[in-house]
């Protein structure tokens, strides 16, 4: 299970995550020994948009029952239960835009053809969960913690639960625990 927490309140809109994403996919997609010394950065797989002071981060949440997969007419979407990610099979995708229409996070884009010869075909692309990296690079590079990604079960939920429990426990040590201690003292 891949748990992706997006907190736009924390986001400064620096778009470093977007750059990191492009970078993450450039290094591995570039064939060495090519003529280009500095290959062009590929399109990022997440998008940061600053609009009237509000920040939007469009990134795939890797749903467990993804609506994009239900809508796909070509069977190109696959849920990889082991890695907890939703993948697009580029060979099967026909670029019909159905997934774009379904994703409530706006996390799928299509690289579209516009040539007059109609030779290229549109394909959908989205976050691939950075499975070739130890950690998803967008979250690693985010300076404010607006994007947090955990690969384990319920990443953020578990952390939040612990914080909550710690707070409850703090209340215990301030109020009730003192009462208990004093009672013991008096008895002695």
């Amino acid at each position: 299970m891949l748990s992706i927490k997006v907190d736009t309140v924390k986001c400064d809109g620096c778009s470093l995550c977007q750059l990191a994403c492009s970078f993450a996919h450039m290094v591995l997609n570039t064939e060495t020994g090519g003529q280009q010394k500095f290959p062009e950065l590929p399109d990022p797989l997440l998008w940061v948009k600053v609009c009237e002071g509000e920040v939007q981060i469009d990134i795939c949440r890797h749903c467990e029952n993804p609506p994009c997969a239900d809508a796909c007419v070509a069977g190109a979407f696959k849920v990889d239960m082991e890695r907890g990610i939703v993948e697009i099979d580029q060979q099967k995708c026909v670029g019909c835009w159905s997934c774009v229409m379904e994703c409530p996070f706006g996390a799928i884009r299509i690289c579209s053809h516009s040539d007059k010869e109609c030779t290229l075909q549109s394909r959908a692309f989205k976050c691939d969960g950075c499975s070739m990296w130890d950690k998803p690079l967008c979250a690693s590079f985010c300076p404010t913690g607006a994007v947090q990604i955990a690969r384990n079960n319920n990443g953020a939920a578990a952390i939040q639960r612990r914080e909550r429990a710690a707070l409850l426990q703090k209340g215990l040590s301030l109020g009730a625990a003192r009462y208990v201690n004093r009672e013991i003292k008096h008895r002695a």
Partner: peptide, 25 residues
């Protein structure tokens, strides 16, 4: 209708929402 996007689990400040390990809801 739950898609298992984990938004609620991430948003809950208490961590009171978990995802079902099999159903993903």
């Amino acid at each position: 209708s739950c898609r298992g996007c984990k938004e609620c689990a991430n948003a809950c400040p208490l961590g009171a929402i978990d995802m079902h390990p099999e159903k993903g809801t």
